[in-house]
Design a protein around this nucleic acid. Structure first.
Lengths: 252, 252
DNA sequence: TTAATAGTGTCTTTTAGACAGTATATG
DNA sequence: CATATACTGTCTAAAAGACACTATTAA
């Protein structure tokens, strides 16, 4: 920037000093988390009974306003919510998408960034009755839950279930619904619950092997009255969880 | 709600009447659009030269604050931005994801919902110099452009390019970079530009056929000194643009 | 030894990659 | 008829689906 423009134009410092963040009407911004687990062979989602208006006494996804400036970023806000409800730390967390409109909340134009989380039932310590709000697991049938949901949460939840089922087909994320060490039969059962169909064992294992999804751990697991199963873990740093079959055929 | 609680608790009407939308500090909320097209056999993205602070005179993605209450919803806000910059209406528009943190904008905690759009170069009427901001096409090399971008727009853009390249593999979206009627050779070339690799013609056409992506239109197209090509359109209402090869093998 | 689940091998069918062929326009 | 691109057919190789087989434990 030259001397002339220095005289005529605002510097960035001046601009920032004089900037009023409330000059424009802002939408309210929230984060909602769809928390999935599998209990009693069913996909379950954690719901909160709303204590206050609007949609008082309705079930809703756990979530809340983004805390400015406490939340460092969107994912931190989502993890905070996740933590408040489950007391659990390390889980699979993925951004689902954002939903915003004039109508979705009677109070204001609101925007919510939705995340979904997968966690093993074994790790759960759900805070029943904390937060002055009741938290409960609800089984997902097809793409829905048996209760009515507040706001557009039914739509958000069904999007999450569809995304989860879709990703199951070509990723290893189902393993995040199990403890860190699992047998291949347990993993297959997890896939079968989510896909709602029995899978072919031999082909299933070939897939896992060729995709490099899992690796054997030394030490075995007992079970009732039969051969013990080898335990596996997810291959560490295996981001490319997707095994992509050939799609567009490159010319050789 | 029974008579007792009526006396003790606020009704929803009362609650809404007394609700102050500015009770909590809110993040600023914007929408940014990555507008893709293909010109001179290169993937190009539309960038704006910022007229004001912050990042004055830097290149940035087209975007701006969500207008409350004018914008009906997030997609409407994105379409408004798209329209302001290109003057074009019907295009492929998909939500990419949201980016928000304390640091990304020096003014405030900001949250941006990013969309990406695909449009045919033929339909373009880019408003050069409108908005007191210069708009220009920049070629994408690998996952980047040649100029520095404001905010975290480089990250957002590279995410968009990766998403585009990934979806190309199993969807028909590349067709949205062409006019409504196109030849299969043109479509193949589009895929080749995006994937940066030559494709096998016979296999390419078999894919399109088996996926039901396109359908022939009556009437042909001339070209220089050779056989004219049949023109095609995208199969209408063909949402399931993805042709998914078999993934998890169901038991028979 | 039986029962029950874990885990593997291989045959057959299907799909996809390679490549050569024919078709139809222009000059 | 030469040439350039459009378009198709088919052979071969590779992957996937089906299914039967062996392995290892506890009772």
């Amino acid at each position: 920037m030259n001397a002339l423009s220095e005289r005529n134009e605002q510097t960035e410092q001046q601009f920032l000093a004089e900037y009023n963040v409330d000059k424009y009407r802002k939408p309210s911004a929230t984060v909602d988390v769809i928390i999935f687990t599998v209990i009693t062979k069913q996909l379950q989602v954690l719901l909160i009974k709303r204590a206050g208006h609007p949609y008082k006494d309705c079930w809703a996804l756990p979530g809340g306003f983004i805390q400015v400036p406490e939340d460092a970023d969107l994912e931190a806000a989502a993890r905070r919510e996740l933590n408040e409800e489950t007391g659990t730390e390390v889980v699979y967390l993925e951004q689902l998408g954002s939903y915003g409109s004039q109508q979705r909340d009677p109070r204001n134009w609101t925007l919510t960034v939705a995340y979904f989380a997968l966690l093993p039932a074994e790790s759960l310590h759900v805070q029943h009755g904390s937060d002055a709000a009741k938290a409960e697991w609800h089984a997902v049938h097809d793409n829905d839950v048996d209760v009515d949901l507040a706001f557009d949460h039914a739509k958000i939840m069904s999007d999450a279930v569809m995304r989860l089922r879709a990703k199951i087909e070509y990723t290893s994320i189902a393993a995040h619904l199990l403890p860190p060490a699992f047998s291949l039969s347990e993993l297959q059962q997890m896939y079968e619950i989510l896909l709602q169909a029995p899978l072919a064992k031999s082909a299933f294992r070939r897939r896992l092997r060729e995709a490099g999804f899992v690796q054997a751990i030394d030490g075995e697991k007992r079970s009732g009255r039969n051969r013990p199963a080898q335990l596996y873990r997810l291959t560490p740093n295996h981001d490319s969880t997707l095994f992509f079959p050939r799609s567009m055929v490159r010319q050789t």
